[in-house]
Amino acid sequence: MATLQDPCDPPFLQRYSSLFSSATRTQPCSRSNENRVFEECELPLIDLWRLHCGDEEERKACVAEIGRVSSEWGFFQVVNHGINAELLRDIKIEQRRLFQSPFEKKVKSKVFNESYRWGNPTATSLDQFSWSEAFHVPLSKLAEHDHGFEEEFMSLRAVMQKLAGAMSELARILAGVLAENLGCLSTCLEENCSEGTCFLRLNRYPPCPFYPDTFGFIPHTDSDFLTILHQDQIGGLQLMKDSKWVSVKPHPEALIVNIGDLFQAWSNDVYKSVEHKVMTNQVERYSIAFFLCPAYESIIGSCKEPSRYKKFTFREYRGQVQEDVKRTGYKVGLKRFIA
């Protein structure tokens, strides 16, 4: 299938031609019932104004609701989250400008510690392939001066610094609420998660000639405590609910929050790190995610005993995930650490 490639798009078809051969494309990623989407859903909506309104009963009800949806869904969306709408508009503009740079410029640059990624170098089948590109940026790198895009994208750096600070504050509030709901102290989370350990990820999903049968991002769970996602209104995010894939309806004013593997382990499986994916579209899609992560040597244990999981460090967990993906093409995750 011949297509005219936009200069900003990664050369997916050229680099991964074997994956997109005619024979392969007759068996697309969504070919089986287990990958079919059965319905569209609106995620549970939490108004965070209730946490700060001054009414203690209202606050307790909000805390309990956040705990409940984190157990039942593993995902929820929040409004009145405290992140300025103008800041979110600014990051959209800067993000689009960055990704509209020619592919060769993006891949050769050293912007944000060479954080540019695209496709899946280890993929051996479409089930392991993501039609997407991203800048996965450690927050610690936002304060550093580098070369490459330094002058051209100074405004991007400034906006990302502001957004990182705002999302970090929101993540800490939510982590504290989730710990409170379990009757536990969040001291461990607060001490181990800092700007030096967390990430921002700028995502772009280019138009795909094989939509909707190609993953924008393969099914996975997040290897962090929790994730905060700001997305456009194109749609494409899907998650596993009651053993079925459901498509998430975008909300123009909400941010999406999801529980990560570390919070599931820390909560002793009270909160659920739910498998999710992104499907491609004929138009491009953008999102930006904040990942609340601990230091690599932080020990992850359950807040209450007996624990379902062996204690492990974040470094051990990341290393095991990477080893599994390299060896099998898939993430195994918490199953490796069951006690």
Rank of each mutant, 00 (worst) to 15 (best):
A2N: 14
L4I: 14
L4E: 14
Q5D: 09
D6S: 13
D6Q: 13
P11V: 09
T24S: 13
T26Y: 03
T26N: 10
C29D: 04
R36F: 06
E39F: 03
E40W: 01
L43A: 10
I46M: 15
D47L: 08
L51C: 06
G54N: 05
G54S: 02
G54V: 01
E58G: 00
K60H: 07
A61I: 00
C62K: 03
A64W: 01
S71G: 08
E86R: 12
L88A: 02
I91D: 08
Q95P: 01
R96S: 14
L98C: 10
F99C: 07
P102K: 13
K106A: 13
V111C: 12
F112S: 12
N113I: 00
Y116H: 09
Q128W: 06
E133L: 07
A134V: 06
V137E: 11
P138Y: 08
S140N: 12
L142G: 07
H145T: 12
H145P: 05
E150S: 15
E151A: 15
E152H: 13
M154L: 05
M167G: 12
S168R: 10
G176D: 03
V177H: 03
L182S: 06
C184Q: 14
L189F: 11
E190I: 06
E191C: 04
E195W: 05
G196P: 03
T197N: 08
T197C: 08
L200N: 11
L200F: 07
L200Q: 09
L202H: 09
Y205V: 00
P209V: 11
D213P: 01
F215R: 01
G216M: 05
P219R: 06
T221I: 08
D222W: 03
D224W: 00
L229Y: 02
G235E: 07
L237V: 07
S243E: 09
S243P: 00
K244Y: 05
S247Y: 02
E253T: 08
L255I: 04
I256Y: 02
V257W: 04
L262F: 09
F263R: 04
W266P: 10
V270L: 13
V270R: 15
K272W: 01
S273K: 01
V274F: 00
E275F: 03
H276L: 10
K277R: 15
M279S: 09
Q282P: 00
V283T: 15
R285E: 12
F291G: 13
F291Y: 14
L292H: 14
E305T: 13
S307G: 11
K310V: 00
R315A: 15
E316Y: 02
Y317R: 07
Y317S: 04
R318P: 01
Q320I: 03
V321F: 02
D324P: 10
V325P: 03
V325H: 10
T328E: 14
Y330W: 10
K335S: 13
K335H: 13
